[in-house]
């Protein structure tokens, strides 16, 4: 494994994308930054521009407004980039499956690498999910 890939796993910068969520997952993502969980320990940073991102955290059930924009945004991320679907909504649209405004599940729009289920997943679960992702990629 190259040094650069190793570095990627040690310093994943995450960008948070909400595609029509209920706020809960989003707040729990922010919670991960705060003193109790402090993901900066693992070199993770929440960054503001998608051009700096290594990991996309997608929450929510992908409504009609989001679908096209999500594709555009995924194009804009510099690769390699990992996509993590946070919460049940992003994973499978959850209770919003039958809504008229949630036409397509997330993984039919962009490739998803990891699903973290839960409504919302606890911050511990999110960290565990991302760490597992890192282990998987790093194990190659």
């Amino acid at each position: 494994m190259s040094l650069k890939l190793k570095a990627l796993l040690k310093s994943p910068w995450v960008f948070h994308l909400s595609t029509g969520s209920c706020n809960n997952c989003d707040i729990e993502i922010l919670d991960c930054l705060t003193p109790r969980f402090d993901i900066e320990r693992f070199g993770m940073l929440l960054i503001g521009s998608i051009k700096h991102a290594d990991v996309l955290l997608v929450t929510g059930s992908c409504n009609r407004m989001s679908v096209e924009r999500l594709k555009v945004l995924y194009e804009q991320v510099p690769k390699p980039c990992l996509v993590v679907a946070i919460g049940t909504c992003a994973g499978s649209r959850g209770i919003f499956k039958d809504s008229y405004n949630c036409p397509v599940p997330l993984d039919k729009i962009i490739p998803v690498d990891v699903y973290i289920p839960g409504c919302p997943p606890k911050p511990e679960a999110m960290i565990a999910g991302v760490v597992k992702l890192i282990e998987k990629v790093g194990g190659a």
Binding site: S92, N101, P103, V104, D107
Partner: peptide
């Protein structure tokens, strides 16, 4: 891209978009 004149809260609302995928995903 929502079509004009289609009102989701009407009782006679029907799915208009053929690309809609109602599977669970994954």
């Amino acid at each position: 891209n929502w079509p004009e004149g289609v009102c989701p809260l009407r009782q006679d609302y029907e799915e208009w978009d053929e690309t809609v995928d109602r599977t669970r995903g994954v």
